[in-house]
């Protein structure tokens, strides 16, 4: 199946990726080829087959809810692209 340019733009918007015009054209072509290849999966009869989300035989790992020592604020902020007053600084999200 061929992905249209509009579909590529829609996916890029969902993924919050700014793409160049060349990238849009390239991904439309490459993703179409990959998705075509994936159609092979439709050959497999999976009726009554449950999905595997994890291979582990364990479910629900509990621990006592006890407060621990938090990481120091300065350490957490050391990688921030922008900070102010001991907080991460971002642009306004509300108009």
């Amino acid at each position: 199946m061929a992905l249209s340019r509009e579909e590529v733009e829609h996916i890029a918007e969902l993924a919050k990726l700014a793409l160049t015009e060349e990238e849009k054209a390239l991904y439309a072509e490459q993703l179409s080829a990959i998705l075509d290849y994936f159609r092979k999966l439709q050959e497999v009869d999976t009726s009554d087959i449950p999905p595997t989300a994890t291979v582990l035989p364990i479910r629900n790992v509990f621990r006592p809810d006890e407060p621990g020592e938090p990481m120091p604020r300065e350490l957490l902020l050391q990688n921030a692209p922008a900070q102010a007053d001991g907080c991460f600084q971002v642009q306004p999200i509300l108009e």
């Binding site: 996916i11 890029a12 793409l19 991904y27 490459q30």
Partner: peptide, 21 residues
């Protein structure tokens, strides 16, 4: 959009696109 569009390389963007789809 800009941070992710320019920060990630071609294969990572390809897989993010594929997975998002």
């Amino acid at each position: 959009r800009l941070t992710r569009g320019r920060g990630f390389g071609p294969e990572v963007k390809r897989r993010i696109m594929l997975g998002t789809y």
